[in-house]
Amino acid sequence: MLIYTLLAGLLFGLYFSLMGLGLNLMFGVMRIVNLAHGDFLMLGAFLAFWLFNLFALNPIPGVAVAFALFLLAGLPLYYLLVPRLLAARDPEMLSFILFFGFSQVIEAVATIAFGTSERSIPGGSMARAAAAVASLLDLAYRPGPIAFLGQSFPVAWLAAGIVSALAVLLIYVYLYRTRLGYLTRAVMASREEAISTGIDVHRVSAIAFGIGIALAAVAGVFVPFMLGSITPAMGVDVTITSFAVIVIGSLGNPLGTVLGGILYGVSYMFMQSYYSSWANLLPYLLLIAVLLVRPSGLLGRQVRRA
């Protein structure tokens, strides 16, 4: 039970990191708080659902489609919302309200379009994808749960864990090995200085905004397997979880998200195992404790003021 819980926490923690990754990138670059994050995740989940039902597209290749589509949608959305917001007196606070409104709009439109019933994608689709990957790599795989360090886990957990790890790796490469990523880090360090050195801040930010939303959509693809089922109203819970993850990691530092996710995942699973009914209290206490002891998050810079 102890080892199973620990491993489950690690695997699920990786998925939690993916959940928070986009949100954190957005905050790091623009200092705005995207309360509609969970709703983008929900839209990604619905995309995977429709891809599966209309085109019989397996969720695993669906990940690539979701990423591309949401990245493209994110760019115009940035120019529509963010520059105007940043011009206001207190954009960091106002972003709470703006994106809360946006999350209501997304949820309302999704309700009108998709109805309110729960939807999901059959669990067997993950096993089929795993079988295809296994035959590609010449590995033996029987449909069903997968053994991982001596414990058996649903194959979707492993798939989500691998995709999450890949996403983190790609963000690392983007930020530290590409020119655009270099500029992005400059904006994260100081927006004002970036502007004064002639960086096209809006272009850098728009791309970060798009990537942030696209990462949410990728996490959304795994919702039917990791979070039970999809409904238009699911966004709020996801947003709150994502916040806990990135605050524990450290706001504004995308790579800190991994630490936050794993810490959150492991402690959540231990709580669920040993103090089941209190499981949802832990994230909030952890969040407050981390903020009070190390306000910048476990891997963050200094953020206190006066």
Binding site: F27, M93, L281, Y284, L291, L292, R305
Partner: peptide, 29 residues
């Protein structure tokens, strides 16, 4: 003590505190 935090951090921490109180009050224990 939350006043030591700035901007978004304060807002999020106060939200977490409210949710924590809800979790305590509504716990069947």
């Amino acid at each position: 003590p939350l006043f030591r935090l700035s901007g978004a951090y304060f807002a999020i921490a106060s939200l977490a505190a409210a949710l924590a109180v809800l979790q305590i009050v509504s716990n069947p224990a």
